[in-house]
Amino acid sequence: MTSSRVKRLTLDAMLLGVAMMLSYLEAVLPLSLVIPIPGAKLGLCNVVVTLCFYAVSPLDAGIVSLMRITLTSLLFGNVSSFIFSLFGGFFAYAGMWLCKFFGDKVSYYGISVLCAALHNIGQCLAGSVLLFSFSIFSYLPLLLIFAVAFGLVTGAVITPIMRLFKNA
């Protein structure tokens, strides 16, 4: 193994650990305690996945995201929460690819907002599949408004971290 591959593997493992820790943090200290919206969360894991996407590689980001979802579902979740997370994670990851084609026309703020929104759309789709009903989409408008707000917050978190990453 060359040193660059070791570095990449170590970085991915570290990012996965951070993502799992953030998942856990958001599970034990849910934002819904402060804001009475079930399921409202900052999506701090997306900070890690976005970092990985732009600082390591898109493939690594996909693997870290998938591993994070699988491991946290095994540790703290159930089959239903796994399916919800998987749909959300996949859509958010697809959003990152979409942003890649926009290039420098979008900043980390826009990327975060788009990923948060797509994450919510993915979760609504997962709910529709599990419940055989599209009625869950009635909840989507509220989620999307929060996606904009929380996406801007996570964008503000990503921007300085990415600057540090690039300089390292």
Binding site: Y108, G110, F137, S138, A147
Partner: peptide, 23 residues
């Protein structure tokens, strides 16, 4: 650089809000 809010971000935010209103 992706450090500052760009026109594309505004388009994304507007699109998400528009989708929210439509749904």
């Amino acid at each position: 650089m992706k450090d500052r809010i760009k026109a594309g971000d505004i388009v994304i935010i507007a699109g998400v809000i528009l989708l929210a209103v439509t749904v």
